[in-house]
Simulated scan of single mutants.
Amino acid sequence: MCITATQRGALAGGLKTKLINFEFLRESRNRDFGTGFYTTIDLNQAMTWPVGKLIRRIESGAETISSNEIPAVAKIRIYPERYGDDISVKDFRGESFDWVRFVLNHRYDSSLDRCLCDTREDMPHPQIVCGSMADNDTGDVIAEFIQSGMSLDEAEHINWFGRNITRSRDGNRLLGLELGDQIAFF
């Protein structure tokens, strides 16, 4: 579906005035890095997210799709030099134990108003988090983690979670950009 120049202008204007819709995020829970605004450096990945959501909506039997549900990808430019030193950034490069533990803690239990960083980490939740995406069906992996009685504090259990979220649906191990890259803003 094509949009008109007027619709494109309205979309861009809306993003400039309110990039993050916290009311929408209020319903969002248990994401890789917590509830936030997720972006990626990979255009193909960026296109997959909203289209996949629309496909799932259609497959679930939606009889109508409104114009505000049509997927869009926005290119956002960040100017770090315009921000002071008061922005906290957590940058995971690679699938380290710390990355797995951070994802596990947020997939286990987090929402817009609460996450385990508040009680488990030595500082509040970072304002920006960068790193790999958890792959596979993380919902099923976290469900098995909980049902098996695994602990958030046991290294062996954290490593089990890490092995299972870095595999494709057909069981192949994925590393680095094969998993996908994400930058989340909080």
Results as ranks from 00 to 15, higher is better:
residue 1 M to E: 09
residue 2 C to Q: 15
residue 3 I to S: 11
residue 5 A to C: 10
residue 7 Q to G: 14
residue 7 Q to H: 15
residue 8 R to M: 15
residue 9 G to K: 14
residue 12 A to N: 15
residue 17 T to A: 12
residue 17 T to M: 14
residue 18 K to A: 13
residue 18 K to S: 13
residue 18 K to L: 08
residue 20 I to R: 11
residue 21 N to I: 06
residue 23 E to C: 03
residue 25 L to T: 06
residue 26 R to L: 14
residue 27 E to V: 10
residue 27 E to R: 12
residue 29 R to V: 09
residue 30 N to F: 04
residue 32 D to M: 02
residue 36 G to W: 02
residue 36 G to Q: 04
residue 37 F to C: 06
residue 37 F to Y: 15
residue 38 Y to I: 02
residue 38 Y to E: 00
residue 40 T to H: 01
residue 41 I to M: 15
residue 42 D to E: 13
residue 43 L to Q: 15
residue 43 L to K: 14
residue 45 Q to P: 03
residue 46 A to G: 03
residue 49 W to C: 05
residue 49 W to I: 11
residue 49 W to E: 05
residue 50 P to D: 07
residue 50 P to G: 03
residue 50 P to T: 15
residue 51 V to M: 11
residue 52 G to A: 14
residue 53 K to E: 06
residue 54 L to R: 01
residue 54 L to C: 06
residue 54 L to F: 04
residue 55 I to Q: 10
residue 55 I to V: 14
residue 55 I to K: 12
residue 55 I to T: 06
residue 56 R to D: 07
residue 57 R to M: 14
residue 62 A to P: 07
residue 62 A to T: 07
residue 63 E to C: 10
residue 65 I to P: 02
residue 68 N to S: 10
residue 70 I to W: 14
residue 72 A to F: 14
residue 74 A to S: 03
residue 75 K to L: 11
residue 75 K to C: 05
residue 75 K to F: 04
residue 79 Y to A: 09
residue 80 P to Y: 12
residue 80 P to L: 04
residue 81 E to D: 09
residue 81 E to M: 11
residue 84 G to D: 10
residue 84 G to S: 13
residue 85 D to W: 09
residue 91 D to R: 05
residue 93 R to I: 08
residue 94 G to L: 07
residue 97 F to N: 05
residue 98 D to A: 13
residue 98 D to P: 06
residue 102 F to M: 09
residue 105 N to W: 15
residue 106 H to Y: 15
residue 107 R to T: 05
residue 109 D to V: 09
residue 109 D to Q: 12
residue 111 S to W: 12
residue 112 L to P: 04
residue 112 L to W: 04
residue 113 D to R: 15
residue 113 D to Y: 15
residue 114 R to T: 05
residue 116 L to N: 09
residue 118 D to G: 08
residue 119 T to M: 07
residue 120 R to S: 11
residue 121 E to S: 09
residue 122 D to N: 11
residue 122 D to A: 13
residue 124 P to S: 05
residue 124 P to F: 02
residue 126 P to Y: 04
residue 126 P to R: 01
residue 126 P to Q: 02
residue 129 V to S: 11
residue 130 C to Q: 11
residue 130 C to A: 13
residue 132 S to T: 07
residue 132 S to W: 00
residue 133 M to C: 12
residue 134 A to T: 00
residue 135 D to Q: 10
residue 137 D to E: 04
residue 142 I to E: 00
residue 143 A to M: 11
residue 145 F to C: 00
residue 148 S to W: 02
residue 150 M to C: 01
residue 151 S to I: 01
residue 151 S to T: 01
residue 152 L to N: 00
residue 152 L to G: 00
residue 153 D to W: 02
residue 153 D to N: 09
residue 153 D to Y: 07
residue 154 E to T: 10
residue 154 E to N: 07
residue 154 E to Q: 07
residue 155 A to M: 07
residue 157 H to L: 01
residue 160 W to K: 00
residue 161 F to V: 01
residue 162 G to T: 00
residue 165 I to S: 00
residue 165 I to E: 03
residue 169 R to A: 15
residue 169 R to T: 08
residue 169 R to E: 13
residue 170 D to K: 08
residue 173 R to T: 10
residue 181 D to S: 13
residue 181 D to T: 10
residue 182 Q to L: 13
residue 183 I to K: 09
residue 183 I to T: 13
residue 184 A to Q: 14
residue 185 F to M: 07
residue 185 F to K: 12
residue 186 F to K: 06
